[in-house]
């Protein structure tokens, strides 16, 4: 059947593309906010898009401040402590998205930044990430994609820095040993193919959070996703069949039109 490339081959392909989640260091907790509500700064010149983003983020439970140009955005970002910044790549005037980002990072502000751009070219993406962006989303996008990515950024930020790298991940009874790359659910050992293991690891690191297909694809296959196919669905289906044996409650849930979430059964 299929000649399966060895694991090392994939390590090789990982280097081809700048996968969004690869290699960016988690940011330090710069400020402790008294309110638990996440505060997002949206810098977007198109008023309609901005208000749509605002509405979507508010529905998601974020507090949102919208500004419509780079200067104002920079002032806001300097003066107020935000947890996240959503930054449009193309802004009117002299200060465009990359300029704002460069200025922010130069000033030592490490707030995670998600760049929105109409430019999907890979080098644009790489430029955005090099300038200090933490994630990159191409317009047009779906709001579930935006909120899932923002959630991931917040989560990444809360990972303690310098802490020992955990050697195992556990969600409910499902447990993976990161050193031996073995998986168990309760007493049952689960045998996974390398790609299935990578999928599961990513889902477990983001347990209880929506992970979109795009995010999964970028993280596990390290190409950026051209969503025409439901191929990921089939991969997840396979994984699901291995994780949930008969009589066990389902752990990987499909969020329709968006992605997946791994939850421990109640």
């Amino acid at each position: 059947m299929l000649t399966r490339p060895s694991r090392s081959l994939h390590v090789g392909t990982l280097r081809f593309c700048c996968g969004v989640h690869i290699g960016s260091p988690p940011y330090k907790n710069t400020k402790e906010r008294p309110a638990p509500m996440t505060h997002v700064l949206v810098i977007e010149d198109d008023v309609t898009t901005a208000s749509e983003i605002e509405a979507a983020l508010q529905d998601h439970g974020f507090a949102v401040t919208c500004v419509h140009n780079g200067r104002e955005g920079l002032l806001q970002a300097f003066s107020d402590g935000f947890d996240l910044i959503v930054l449009d790549r193309m802004l009117p005037g002299t200060l465009d998205g990359l300029g704002v980002l460069t200025a922010l990072r130069a000033a030592g502000i490490a707030t995670p930044v998600l760049i929105l751009s109409a430019l999907s070219a890979l080098d644009e993406r790489v430029r955005g990430l090099r300038a200090g962006g933490d994630d990159y989303l191409t317009k047009p996008f779906e709001f579930i994609e935006l909120t899932a990515r923002l959630d991931a950024l917040i989560r990444r930020r809360s990972v303690p820095v310098g802490g020992e790298r955990e050697s195992r991940l556990k969600v409910g009874k499902l447990e993976i040993d990161l050193l031996n790359r073995t998986v168990r659910r309760g007493e049952r050992a689960i045998d996974l193919l390398p790609r299935e293991y990578a999928l599961l690891e990513h889902l477990m690191r983001n347990a209880d959070q929506v992970v979109t297909r795009t995010m999964l694809f970028e993280a596990v296959w390290s190409y950026s996703y051209d969503e025409r196919t439901n191929v990921i669905e089939v991969h997840i289906g396979r994984l699901r069949r291995k994780i949930d044996s008969e009589g066990e409650e389902q752990m990987i849930h499909t969020i329709r039109g968006a992605g997946y979430v791994l939850r421990s059964p109640k």
């Binding site: 059947m1 299929l2 490339p5 081959l9 392909t13 790609r195 190409y223 191929v231 289906g237 396979r238």
Partner: peptide
Amino acid sequence: ADAAEFFEP
């Protein structure tokens, strides 16, 4: 190989 592996399932 990546593409074939992706479509194999």
